[in-house]
């Protein structure tokens, strides 16, 4: 009974992850600028990467396969989910900083105080 519940919880998590991935692709096409596309990238990486990997753990725990295979799948999925949850927000943050400082794209705001400070050479 408990393995059936675990299996269907896992399938539901992977399904939710796939739906959020497709929603993130729609967001990538709707937003026209780099700085607003960061929202869609967060949905695509956390909702489309972290949830399905946790769901795979639940699927494997309820499945009738070899015991060693079960351990390998669980460990790899948890480690990959941890890497994605820690590294992807840091990566998009450092990428936004690099794009802003290199004047690759200018943000569509009314007043840009950080840009003025960078022009005067106050913030290094």
């Amino acid at each position: 009974m408990i393995d059936l519940i675990l299996f269907y919880i896992g399938v539901a998590l992977v399904f939710i992850g796939g739906v959020m991935d497709i929603l993130a692709t729609i967001g990538f096409f709707k937003f026209k600028e780099f700085y607003t596309r960061l929202h869609a990238a967060t949905i695509g990486s956390i909702g489309g990467g972290l949830y399905p990997l946790i769901g795979v753990v639940f699927i494997v725990l309820g499945l009738d396969i070899d015991y060693n295979l079960k351990l390998v799948f669980t460990g790899t999925s948890i480690i990959a989910a941890g890497i994605i949850a820690l590294a992807t927000p840091a990566g998009s943050h450092i990428l936004a900083r690099g794009v802003y400082r290199s004047r690759e794209e200018s943000p569509s705001v009314i007043i840009d105080r950080l840009g003025e400070d960078l022009e005067r050479g106050e913030m290094e």
Binding site: V14, D21, L38, A40, A41, G48, T88
Partner: peptide
């Protein structure tokens, strides 16, 4: 280049799953 790398992030996370 920025938009391309941002889309590649989401693409590779999708491919991992």
């Amino acid at each position: 280049l920025g938009s391309m790398v941002l889309a590649i992030d989401a693409l590779v996370v999708d491919l991992v799953v």
